[in-house]
């Protein structure tokens, strides 16, 4: 369980806030989607959770422990992170990329290779075909699968995914979303998923938090959001897909 308690983050010494007084509880085993446009602070929340940055104010606890009391290296190794823009290491093969987390915690080579193959198969990449490839030889969708496999390698309790499918075409994105649902069902991880895509949020999220200009406007299931939007922003945001749908119906 991850709890954010009145967390704020400023990058310019308090002149402006990327994140302003956010409180949030992410439950064990749920998939929590942070939804918002760019600059809304959703990625900041993810980076705070993995302590890539430190909060300006407020407290974050992980399973009841203050995040500052968890060693930062340990903490990150226990959180699979899928980065915006993939973040695979270009000088390492697919196999080495997937196994990097295991290498850091000192697994012997044969064991981590076996685990990397297992994970590649799990994310739907034939391990025999791709193991020795370098990332730049793979398509965007394949690279993203590798990134997911890397995040899962150490069997972390938490999976942080930062717009992982943002740069992919619609078809590939849909396939990978299904993969995430499948993994979620089979692995039972707590997933924090950042996206700006409302449909993606609705497909994946058990609960959704809507970010707007550094504040968290509303947290709830998709049903709650649709039925009782708390702010005008949330209402307008959720109305947009329906408007788009209507535009298409006009064309018929």
């Amino acid at each position: 369980m991850i709890v954010l308690d009145n967390v704020s983050k400023s990058f310019d010494g308090g002149q402006s806030y990327a994140l302003c007084d956010v409180s949030l509880t992410i439950e064990e085993g749920e998939t929590f989607v942070l939804l918002g446009s760019s600059g809304s602070g959703k990625t900041t929340i993810l980076r705070l959770i993995s302590r890539l940055i430190e909060p300006t104010a407020g407290q974050i606890t992980l399973d009841g422990r203050d995040l500052n009391d968890c060693g930062v290296i340990e903490l990150r190794r226990n959180m699979g992170y899928v980065f915006q823009g993939i973040g695979l290491f270009p000088h390492m093969t697919v196999g080495q990329n997937v196994a990097i987390g295991l290498r850091l915690i000192g697994w012997p080579l044969p064991k981590r290779e076996a685990r990397a193959r297992e994970l590649l198969d799990l994310v739907g990449l034939e391990s025999d075909a791709y193991f020795a490839h370098f990332p730049n030889e793979l398509s965007g969708g394949q690279q993203q699968r590798v990134a997911v496999a890397r995040a899962l390698a150490t069997d972390p309790d938490y999976l942080l995914m930062d717009e992982p499918f943002g740069a992919l075409d619609a078809l590939t994105r849909e396939t990978l979303q299904k993969e995430v649902l499948r993994l979620k069902a089979s692995l039972g991880k707590t997933i924090v998923f950042v996206t700006h895509d409302i449909l993606e949020a609705f497909i994946l999220g058990d609960r959704i938090g809507v970010c707007n200009k550094g504040r968290l406007d509303q947290v709830g299931t998709r049903r709650e959001l649709l039925k009782t939007p708390k702010t005008d922003f949330v209402r307008a945001l959720l109305a947009r897909p329906l408007e788009q749908l209507e535009t298409f119906q006009d064309l018929k």
């Binding site: 890539l52 340990e74 992170y81 973040g87 290491f89 990097i100 850091l104």
Partner: peptide, 9 residues
Amino acid sequence: IVEAARGVG
């Protein structure tokens, strides 16, 4: 890439 390196611990 640098952030990814930090992120994987």
